[in-house]
C-alpha cells in the first residue's frame, strides 16, 4: 500500500511491537502475557509490515521460512519436557534453577516454544494469503 504516513508509522510500530512482544513473553509467568499473546502481537506486527512493504520484503526480513519457525517452536516445546525425564519425573514437569535472584525454569523454554510455533503458523498463513 502506498501511503507515506503508514510506511513511516510502520517503521516505528513494528520495532516497538516486537520489543513489546518479547516483554509480554518474559513477564507472562507473573503478569498477563505469555507465549501465545506474544505471538499474536508479533504476528500483528509482521502483518502490518507485510501490508505496507509487501510479502517479499517480509520474507527477506525474517530470513528463515515461517514453517521452519513453527517446527522449531514445536521442537523447543517438546524438548522442554526432557530435563524432567532425566530427573526421573514425568515428562514436561517443570524444573527450576535459581540464578541469583531470578528463578528460571523449563516452563519458560516451553513458553518460548509456544511463541515460535504460533508465530510460525500465523506468518505462514499470512504470507500464503499475501503472495498472490
Amino acid at each position: 500500500m502506498q501511503s507515506i504516513i503508514l510506511k513511516t508509522a510502520t517503521r516505528l510500530m513494528v520495532g516497538l511491537m516486537l520489543v513489546f512482544a518479547v516483554y509480554l513473553l518474559l513477564r507472562g509467568h507473573h503478569e498477563p502475557g505469555g507465549g501465545f499473546v506474544a505471538a499474536l502481537v508479533s504476528g500483528t506486527a509482521f502483518a502490518l509490515f507485510a501490508i505496507t512493504e509487501g510479502p517479499a520484503q517480509l520474507r527477506r526480513a525474517i530470513r528463515v521460512r515461517p514453517s521452519v519457525i513453527a517446527m522449531t517452536g514445536l521442537a523447543v516445546a517438546a524438548a522442554a519436557g526432557f530435563p524432567a525425564l532425566f530427573a526421573g519425573m514425568p515428562y514436561l514437569t517443570g524444573i527450576w534453577w535459581k540464578i541469583g535472584e531470578i528463578s528460571l525454569g523449563t516452563p519458560l523454554i516451553f513458553d518460548v516454544g509456544v511463541f515460535l510455533a504460533v508465530l510460525g503458523a500465523i506468518v505462514s498463513l499470512l504470507l500464503a494469503l499475501e503472495e498472490n
Binding site: G28, H29, H30, P32, G33, G34, A80, G94, D111
Partner: peptide, 20 residues
C-alpha cells in the same frame, strides 16, 4: 510453579502436555 499468573502457569506448567 514459581508463577503468579495462574492462567499462564496452567498453560505452560500444570497442563503443558495439553498445550503441546
Amino acid at each position: 510453579a514459581h508463577g503468579r499468573n495462574i492462567v499462564n502457569v496452567i498453560l505452560v506448567d500444570f497442563r503443558s502436555l495439553d498445550t503441546l
